[in-house]
Design a binder for these strands. Structure first.
Lengths: 338, 338
DNA sequence: TTGAAAGCGCTAACAA
DNA sequence: TTGTTAGCGCTTTCAA
């Protein structure tokens, strides 16, 4: 019932070879034959069998994206936007996007391996890099095409797009110090994530530059969710001397922290200042709106996808590095210390 | 450099066929031969070429998911959770998940067609159904496997999972009327979405049952985003007689509406009540926390994926229908009318 | 300008 | 129990 090249060949009375060539726009087919074939293909509703083409070409025209999730559920607006950026670009470039979710660990690595060895993908986009990232180590060793949103120790050896979290946190530090804050707490994601480490170091350096040392005892670790932010903030507010400002390592935790502060009866932006990092749309509509560092995630998705396709197609050997300078979005969750 | 069946055959001195059979666990291979082959395969690091297997089997072992987006960017926690549900389940069942994003319209339909005709997917999961949904019409006509999260006019003829939005809105209606609200506004998504229509009718019916008629002039249409909710609410609050309660068609718009009300200096939950629909995690951490109707989106994703695989594998002919009764989550964005 | 034939890597009907 | 052969649908080399 499906139309194959063979059927067209039979109908127009030419060989399979000629039909294939006409269809693929080779110019060693006479114009009449070509138009005859094209005409027939159209009438018969032909469309090529992608699987066969891929087998023959020995490439899958598919990009792999494995989203690392901690809990099976995950609900991060940040990722849906990233996904949209990658998805739209890959479609534009003619690549399928194979998406999966895996918790970090051996299973995750095995899955990368499986996809590669089965020939199911031509390259990977790696997101949310970690210190000593086994995925990157593996891909590098195999010399398999990939591009990365984020960085790690060996970033020199691969192509990546990243925002400058170190710089971004300095913007936060300056902003808070300008407002008079000194006793500043930090809710950090697991420092095994390079972005978290980056932001942490940026904050420390930014404060240092202004003569302030980040107090170790005011550092809490959260799991990147609102709940995590809420719980960390709650704990911080139980201290005998509470901080005047809380810096959260991402927006979701910042929003959770705001919520916790409010539940304690504090006025966020006056009694206490709270900052985020990412620039998710929700931050703008929170009450108070969140002061944060903006990351153009959608654009980043498109860029990192583009980068990968270049690597796959042109066999680019020299890694390309894009480091974006983020902007500070000052809103009402921060204010002068009192 | 890649190990193929041929290589194993050469090494162990059996035919390609025998190797294939041993690898696939057929029992017409002598135990010794079998273990010999398995051993060799392991040593040589063999893994089958998925593309070749698929071509031979004439199936792609791939599920298609085309997310409908309005703007190119989209940032809806609801979808990332749905995606996680689908993604984890499909991986568990051995299917690849091909994800793409498309704006509703002819391009979207063409993409479904392209994927089918290229043999790239074995079935689709259709989400966010619309009235006279052309995707469903097309899939039905072609008799191509698909399952749906949502419903439409012809739901009888296909398998779906949906939550009962009609019922859910009645819960909202009852809750608000119990609190004494009479002047109720509704911020609805585009009524071309079946879920929106469903919720709308549920609200009307629920209020009617309690003797209240939903005032047409208090119905606004928003685009499902916070911004949309914000703008609609802003407009509603400019009326000479403002509503005592605002029902939003989804959580994101509800959160936007809360934000708008607060910017007008209103105390949400006392001066005005606002409700959502979906149960995104953010609602719990908003200030005030959002009264809403909960949908187990992650679970729904898994269910609808499971359903599709059953259809693909077992050639199920009788459509399966799952309609979930949602729960009302009463939080502080609603309160007694004053 | 066209066609025959090989081959991508695998599975399966049939024969031995 | 094992092997021969054909074939999935396509592209491409080589020869005519």
């Amino acid at each position: 019932m499906k139309v194959r090249i063979k059927d067209i060949a039979k109908k127009v009375g030419f060989s399979i070879t000629t039909v294939s060539r006409a269809l693929n726009g080779y110019d060693d087919v006479s114009p009449e034959t070509k138009s005859l074939i094209l005409q027939a293909a159209k009438e018969m509703g032909y469309s090529p069998n992608t699987l066969a083409q891929r087998l023959q070409k020995q490439q899958s025209d598919t990009i792999g994206l494995v989203l690392p999730t901690f809990s099976p559920r995950f609900s991060d607006p940040y990722f849906s936007e990233l996904l949209a950026g990658i998805g739209n670009k890959s479609a534009e470039l003619g690549y399928d996007l194979l998406v999966s979710t895996r918790a970090p660990g051996p299973q995750e690595d095995a899955y990368y391996k499986k996809l590669i060895e089965g020939g199911r993908v031509d390259g990977f986009i790696v997101v949310r890099t970690r210190i000593r990232d086994s995925r990157i180590k593996y891909l590098l060793e195999r010399n398999f095409p990939f591009s990365v949103f984020g960085r790690s120790e060996d970033s020199d050896h691969y192509s990546y797009v990243d925002e400058d979290g170190y710089y971004g946190m300095q913007l936060i530090a300056d902003h808070l110090v300008d407002l008079g804050h000194q006793r500043i707490a930090f809710i950090t994601p697991d420092l095994g994530f390079t972005f978290a480490d980056e932001r942490y170091r940026g904050l420390v350096a930014g404060l240092q530059k202004r003569g302030i040392t980040l107090n170790e005892t005011l550092i809490m670790q959260g799991d990147l969710t609102q709940r995590g932010g809420y719980e960390c903030c709650e704990a911080l507010l139980k201290r005998s001397e509470i901080p005047t400002a809380i810096v959260a390592g991402n927006d979701l935790m910042a929003l959770g922290a705001i919520s916790a502060a409010q539940d304690k009866g504090l006025q966020v932006g006056t009694d206490i200042s709270i900052t985020g990092f990412d620039g998710i749309p929700m931050g703008e509509y929170f009450h108070p709106p969140l002061t944060t560092v903006n990351q153009p995630v959608y654009k980043i998705g498109a860029m990192v996808c583009n980068m990968l396709v270049k690597i796959i197609k042109d066999k680019v050997e020299v890694p390309e590095h894009i480091l974006l300078k983020p902007d500070l979005l000052i809103r009402n969750s921060t204010g002068e210390v009192r």
